[in-house]
Amino acid sequence: MDQVKRKKCHPYLVPIIAIVETLSETLGPDYEVVLHDVSGEEHQIVAMAHGELTGRTEDSPLTDFGEYLLRSEEEYKGVHYIANYPSYASDGRPLRSSVTLLRDGNEKIIGFLCINYDMTRAQILKDLGTELTCVVPLKASQVAEETFVPSSGSLLQKILEETRQQRGGRPLRYTTTREKLEIMSFLKSKGFFRLKGAVEALCKELGKSRYTVYGYLREIRTGDNDNNNEDSSQD
Rank of each mutant, 00 (worst) to 15 (best):
31 Y>K: 00
130 T>C: 14
106 N>F: 06
8 K>W: 01
146 E>A: 12
32 E>Y: 05
23 L>H: 02
61 P>D: 12
82 I>L: 15
31 Y>W: 07
215 G>E: 03
137 P>Y: 08
63 T>L: 04
8 K>M: 00
190 K>Q: 15
81 Y>C: 11
22 T>Q: 12
96 R>N: 02
123 Q>P: 00
169 G>T: 10
19 I>Q: 07
76 Y>I: 05
163 T>F: 01
230 E>A: 08
19 I>R: 06
98 S>T: 00
172 L>W: 03
106 N>V: 01
78 G>V: 03
177 T>E: 13
107 E>D: 14
27 L>P: 02
58 E>D: 14
194 R>H: 11
83 A>N: 09
179 E>Y: 01
196 K>R: 13
21 E>W: 00
220 I>W: 11
147 T>N: 08
24 S>E: 10
162 E>V: 12
232 S>L: 13
78 G>W: 01
48 M>K: 09
151 S>C: 06
183 I>V: 09
168 G>Y: 05
191 G>T: 11
209 S>Q: 02
220 I>T: 15
73 E>I: 03
205 E>F: 07
160 L>R: 05
181 L>E: 07
96 R>P: 00
121 R>L: 11
144 A>G: 14
179 E>I: 08
129 G>D: 12
219 E>L: 11
132 L>P: 09
21 E>S: 06
199 V>Q: 12
171 P>M: 12
227 N>V: 06
174 Y>K: 05
45 I>N: 01
121 R>Y: 07
22 T>N: 11
211 Y>D: 13
224 D>H: 15
170 R>H: 11
171 P>A: 10
44 Q>T: 13
130 T>I: 14
128 L>Y: 04
55 G>N: 00
76 Y>M: 05
92 G>H: 00
198 A>C: 09
185 S>I: 04
74 E>A: 14
86 P>H: 10
5 K>V: 01
200 E>F: 07
34 V>F: 06
113 L>R: 02
166 Q>N: 15
74 E>Y: 09
176 T>C: 03
123 Q>S: 07
48 M>F: 06
104 D>I: 02
108 K>V: 13
231 D>M: 04
74 E>L: 10
91 D>K: 00
44 Q>Y: 03
199 V>I: 15
193 F>Y: 14
20 V>C: 02
53 L>K: 00
121 R>S: 08
184 M>G: 02
70 L>R: 02
109 I>E: 00
139 K>E: 11
149 V>C: 09
101 L>K: 09
44 Q>N: 04
125 L>I: 12
187 L>S: 07
172 L>A: 03
213 V>D: 12
59 D>C: 10
137 P>L: 08
146 E>N: 10
216 Y>A: 06
71 R>S: 15
186 F>L: 11
231 D>E: 07
31 Y>E: 05
192 F>S: 07
20 V>E: 01
151 S>R: 03
162 E>R: 13
50 H>N: 14
53 L>W: 00
4 V>G: 02
36 H>I: 01
157 Q>F: 10
125 L>W: 11
69 L>S: 03
48 M>I: 14
132 L>Y: 15
233 S>Q: 15
70 L>Y: 06
154 S>H: 13
42 E>T: 05
25 E>T: 05
50 H>C: 01
198 A>R: 12
230 E>S: 05
